[in-house]
Design a protein around this nucleic acid. Structure first.
Length: 956
RNA sequence: GCCGCGGUGGUGAAAUUGGUAUACACGCCAGUCUUAGGAACUGGUAGGUUUAUCCUGUGGGAGUUCGAGUCUCCCCCGCGGCACCA
């Protein structure tokens, strides 16, 4: 038999697959459809990289598997062909992007075919193709007609090197994602998509898709929903104090702030507006220190975002002559302008609560502003015993808690309770008429007998909610906390009653946290000597008038309701997500189908003129204005269609627009009447999408927006584009470094295919780590899968045609491989096949039936070898037209199992028994074991645990 | 700083989701065959010692359990993302 020669085999089958029209699927047959999609590549000059190789291999394996399972599988490929690199290359060399792109795509196709990926390249979606971008423009028009597009001149991210505007999502650490140039803010007129209209749905509908949890979480965080309230603070001018009331009424001005923490509003000690806040200009005449303010604003304007972020210390200036009034308590507080407040979020103004916000705290410390505490920690009992019964009301109780320090040692007086497992400081309830401090002293005396106490300080209150088990009622206790030190050890005797309840113990300070059982007590001790910090969590209100002793959550509800009633504010939901700016001042992109009338009014290019073609008569040297402005052809086209003095929109679209809908095109790529016909829409949405996690904030978000928008307009019946999403991990070098040109560690898939063969490369990528984990590409390790394939090849020599019984291991392997591939656990699927092959290799003969089953389940992973062997075994049909084998559930059952016997949790024996052994028998066998007898003889057996077909655990 | 993910042999990694930790593979060691081997094949490969009905062992520490890599709490380390979003 000739030896395994991948090069020859792979070339032969790749050619055959190309010839065979049988690979073409019937796109009108959607009865048992499955749509598996890869993220299409940008056709760069360097060709396919290893990351593509891995994810496309995964999808190819999955595609072949699903096909063998009898699905009609759509597994398309295309090119995200517009984009900057081709244009930059054109600037350097003068070669038009259309030519380089075409050449690069050909190279990509060659590479994909060399790896045995099965795509029908006559059914591609190529975004730079007018057949395709006609529909990109059509969708733009639909969005435009439905109010989802607007034009606005505003400060936008500008990359000086790329000479274009870029989206928020394309800014990384204030640098251009593509070229690393520092981003400037520039006033540019740009088109926006109203993605924020869908913010709520974009968050909510994530619940319905099968995506990795962390991807969902990250996307939710990016959209950044926060619920809160807007509150109006009246502005008072200290100069106009003499104004009559009615005059004031007429000229009432307000600063509106956004906060998620209305419950802290009684702790407001100042208000801050962002430097770009319009109110400053409005109030100009009333500001005493105008020059100082405008100097500050000017200075912060010149700071880049990065400077603002990196500034170690917060800065700001008070607007002198102006005060803001807290609507809740009528307090007048100062107003500052400070650049730690962002103009672009919320209302551009905040109420500052230094006691309960770290940023405000830092600022207040620096400028010596008052810090007023209004929230105190609350500890809820969430575990039995004493777990809160949430459907019952709380009974409130005042309480005291005393920390008592030893007169000379670093020890504290604690109680060890006798009837319950409590270890606490001294606590109790105040008796009538006493002050809380007196009550604390009384409690200490009664419970411990100590009496010569010196009060060190009174600490902030803490609160606790729990279910009082003996009294059968929810308690809400408010603890007044005192810190005493004993002057000496002088003490009285304590009552028998108290003695029955608890012992008094002295505990060293470093053991206290371990000793105490109540979280509230631990918290107090931890913060006993801590310097002042801001407490940012929810808790219980205090110093808040009628809202005292409400929890933060309750207070937020009541306070917001009050604001709405008084017309001084309202409930508001804010999102971090901004609208998507899609204009790019570049050439190689989809033209925006807009023309301007002589008056400068924008008009859609009517549908009959779509595709609105990208002109070819432009040079590519960037000048900061769009290259399209230089096209004579475009100018003439516009004037011919629309009339004299009409002009074209010269900007092109962000390439992420192109890729936001390509998956909708694949079912019907040649349709020139619709982006996809009604019948072909039955393929949608995508059942399985595979690609990198780096697209979480851009492509995956934009594509979801497109589908939601098209759904709303009525062009799609579904709401989410990708039902299932899986990520592939990164491909690193063998030391675990990212591959990069500069490091010179980039691996070219062509070389690997040349060296090891496509089947080995495919198998190695799938075997070496789980799909979502990083793959460390180590050429020394690939021999493992190569040896495996060689072994499979050589097994042909052992085949006997006689019908032998297919053994249990083969059936187990069919089961395991099928189940693992279904959930994309390719690495363990392969290891199971290795186990089978190792076992077959030990046999002198193997049945042809077993061998064929092996080759069939191997086929999705190593399609070339599988086809070759299949063919040599005398089959004329492709192996991929055979069905995925079924396993015999009777045969995979083991007759004998190894029963594990444990004594006190330790394995002491394993006994081979019949699989159908009963519980009683199993226990009997276990107890009769000689080994076990050694461990249990003379001891009382307390318990025997039996786990069916697994173990007997004896407790003595 | 915040959020997310992870830490298991010399290495990449398994572990039926609470039930024999280290499957499968690389590497290494020994052997077989060979003119040779950086080929192939066979066997071995967590550590310890008292070498066997043994003990220890999944980043560290505590806990729950008959039983923990898996669950709970605290801490350490690594990776990825976000970063003054009120």
């Amino acid at each position: 038999m000739e030896s395994y020669n991948p090069k020859e085999i792979e070339a032969k089958w790749q050619e055959k697959w190309l010839e065979q029209a049988s690979e073409k699927i019937d796109k009108d047959d959607t009865k048992k459809k499955f749509y598996i999609l890869d993220m299409f590549p940008y056709p760069s000059g360097t060709g396919l990289h290893m990351g593509h190789t891995e994810s496309y291999t995964a999808s190819d394996v999955f595609y072949r598997f699903k096909k063998m399972q009898g699905f009609n599988v759509l597994h398309p490929q295309g090119f995200d062909a517009f984009g900057l690199p081709a244009e930059n290359y054109a600037i350097k060399t003068g070669v038009p992007p259309i030519e380089t792109t075409k050449k690069n795509m050909e190279n990509y196709i060659r590479q994909m075919q060399s790896l045995g990926f099965n795509y029908d390249f006559s059914e591609q979606a190529i975004t730079s193709d007018p057949e395709y971008y006609k529909w990109t423009q059509w969708i733009f028009s639909e969005f435009y007609k439905n109010g989802l597009v607007y034009k606005k001149t505003q400060k936008t991210n500008w990359c000086a090197s790329c000479q274009t505007v870029i989206a928020n999502e394309q800014v990384v650490e204030n640098k251009c994602e593509r070229c690393g140039t520092e981003i400037e803010q520039k006033e540019v007129p740009t088109w926006f998509f109203k993605i924020t209209d869908f913010a709520e749905e974009l968050i909510a509908d994530l619940d319905d898709v099968d995506w990795p949890e962390y991807t969902k979480k990250n996307q939710r965080a990016w959209i950044g929903k926060s619920e809160g309230a807007e509150i109006k603070f009246e502005i008072r001018n200290s100069k106009s104090e003499t104004n009559s009331k009615s005059e004031k009424q007429n000229t009432k001005q307000f600063i509106e702030v956004f906060t998620t923490r209305v419950d802290t509003v009684f702790g407001v000690t100042y208000v801050v507006v962002a430097p770009e806040h319009p109110l400053i200009a409005q109030l100009e005449s009333q500001i005493a220190n105008r020059d100082e303010i405008f100097a500050y604003i000017e200075k912060s304007k010149n700071k880049t975002e990065l400077d603002r972020m990196e500034a170690k210390e917060k800065t700001g200036v008070e607007l002198e002559g102006i005060k803001a009034v807290n609507p809740f308590n009528g307090e007048e507080v100062p107003v500052f302008v400070a650049d730690y407040v962002l103009g672009s979020y919320g209302t551009g103004a905040v109420m500052a609560v230094p006691a309960h916000d770290e940023r405000d705290f830092e600022f207040a410390k620096k400028y010596n502003l008052p810090i007023k505490k209004v929230i105190e920690p609350c500890f809820d009992q969430l575990a039995e015993p004493g777990k809160i019964k949430w459907d019952e009301a709380f009974v409130e109780r005042d309480a005291i808690l005393a920390i008592v320090k030893h007169w000379e040692k670093d020890e504290y007086l604690c109680l060890q309770w006798k009837k319950v497992d409590w270890r606490t400081f001294i606590t109790g309830g105040p008796e009538g008429g006493q002050s809380f401090e007196e009550a604390a002293r009384t409690e200490i005396l009664e419970e411990t007998g100590y009496k010569n106490l010196k009060l060190i300080k009174e600490l902030p209150m803490v609160h606790s909610r729990f279910y009082h088990v003996p009294k059968k009622v929810n308690r809400f206790a408010h603890f007044n906390v005192f810190y005493f030190e004993l002057k000496d050890g002088d003490k009285d005797n304590i009552s028998d009653n108290e003695q029955e309840n608890h012992d008094t113990v002295w505990v060293m300070s470093d053991k206290i946290e371990q000793f105490l059982t109540a979280d509230s007590h631990k918290y107090i001790f931890k913060n006993l000597n801590n310097p002042e910090v801001s407490f940012v969590e929810d808790g219980v209100l205090n110093n808040s008038g009628e809202y005292n002793f409400l929890t933060s959550e309750q207070a937020r509800g009541k306070m917001t309701a009050w604001l709405e009633e008084k017309g001084l504010g309202k409930k508001v939901v804010n999102y971090r997500l901004r609208d998507w700016s899609i204009s790019r001042q570049r050439y190689w992109g989809c033209p925006i189908p807009i023309v301007y009338s002589p008056e400068g009014e924008p008009h859609l290019v009517p549908e009959q003129y779509l595709p609105w073609k990208l002109p070819e008569d432009v040079d590519f040297v960037p000048t900061g204005t769009s290259p399209l402005a230089k096209s004579q052809e475009l100018k003439e086209r516009v004037e011919k269609i629309f009339g004299e003095c009409w002009t074209a929109e010269y900007d092109t679209m962000d390439t992420f627009v192109d890729s936001s809908w390509y998956f909708l095109r694949y079912p019907d790529v040649h349709n020139d009447k619709e982006f996809c016909s009604q019948t072909r829409k039955a393929w949608l949405p995508v059942d399985m999408y595979i690609g990198g996690a780096e697209h979480t904030y851009m492509h995956l978000l934009y594509a979801r927006f497109f589908v939601k928008a098209l759904h709303k307009i009525g062009h799609l019946s579904f709401n989410e584009p990708f039902l299932k999403l899986r990520h592939q991990g990164m491909v690193l070098d063998k030391a675990g470094n990212k591959m990069s040109k500069s490091k010179g560690n980039v691996i070219n898939p062509d070389e690997m295919v040349e060296k090891f063969g496509a089947d080995s490369v495919r198998m190695y990528m799938m075997f070496v780590a789980p799909l979502e984990d990083a793959v460390m590409w180590n050429e020394e390790n690939i021999v493992g899968v190569r040896r495996f394939l060689e072994r499979v090849w050589r097994l042909q020599e052992k085949i006997v045609v006689e019908n032998m019984v297919v053994d249990s291991l083969t059936h187990k392997t069919i089961k395991k491989v099928g189940e693992d591939v279904e959930v994309m656990k390719f690495n363990t699927a392969i290891s199971q096949m290795m186990i089978l092959v190792n076992a077959m290799d030990k046999e002198k003969q193997i049945s042809v039936t077993s061998y064929e089953l092996l080759v069939t389940i191997l086929a999705p992973f190593a399609p070339h070898m599988a086809e070759e062997i299949w063919n040599k075994l005398g089959h004329s049909e492709s192996i991929f037209s055979s069905a995925w084998p079924e396993y015999d559930s009777e045969l995979i059952k083991d007759e004998k199992i190894k029963l594990v016997i444990q004594v006190n949790g330790k394995v002491r024996d394993t006994i081979e028994v019949n699989a159908e052994i009963s519980e009683d028998e199993a226990k009997k066998v276990a107890l009769e074991s000689e080994k076990i007898k050694n461990y249990i003889s003379g001891k009382e057996i307390r318990k025997i645990i039996y786990v069916k077909n697994k173990l007997v655990s004896i407790v003595v």
